[in-house]
């Protein structure tokens, strides 16, 4: 049997799930048609850290997620609709072209720095795990997977 959870909205003690709920559902479905919210796959998302069985597993997963985030991207300005937005975008793009080499240099240095930090954290975690954490397997597996 399929269980469908029902939306419930109570305003000042009165159940408004039908009228206000319908409005909310309609408005939300319009947003969902063209989502503007950035989303990662469940596997890459920080939310995959929720529900870990132990601190050891949390730490291993956390390091894995940090490792996936070491790179720093330099992206061009996003274009939005409308004449004013177009003008602002064109101006920003011009600026971006001028400063791009400097940005890329900063991003490269930041990327190296991030990598060094994550490397150190991983080494520290592997050295520390047998002493502190009975659940060492997660960290060991993480080290072997890399």
């Amino acid at each position: 049997m399929l269980f469908v959870a029902l939306m419930r909205i109570i305003v000042a003690g009165v159940d408004r799930s039908s009228d206000l709920g319908d409005w909310v559902r309609h408005r939300a479905s319009r947003m969902k048609r063209r989502p503007l919210v950035r989303r990662l796959s469940p596997e890459d998302s920080a939310l995959s850290l929720a529900g870990m069985e132990s601190e050891g597993r949390f730490r291993a997963r956390y390091l894995e997620l940090l490792r996936r985030r070491v790179g720093v991207e330099v992206l061009p300005p996003v274009r939005r609709r409308g004449a004013v937005s177009w003008a602002a975008w064109a101006f920003r793009r011009l600026l971006w072209r001028v400063i791009r080499p400097f940005l890329e240099d900063i991003a490269w240095q930041q990327g190296i720095f991030n990598e060094l930090v994550v490397d150190s954290l991983e080494q520290w975690a592997r050295a520390d795990a047998p002493r502190k954490d009975p659940d060492q397997n997660a960290l060991k597996e993480h080290g072997e997977a890399r």
């Binding site: 939306m7 419930r8 909310v24 559902r25 947003m31």
Partner: peptide, 14 residues
């Protein structure tokens, strides 16, 4: 206002 079982876009709309 109390709510239950709203997904993120629904909560934003509310």
């Amino acid at each position: 206002v109390l709510f239950d079982e709203l997904d993120p876009p629904e909560l934003a709309a509310l």
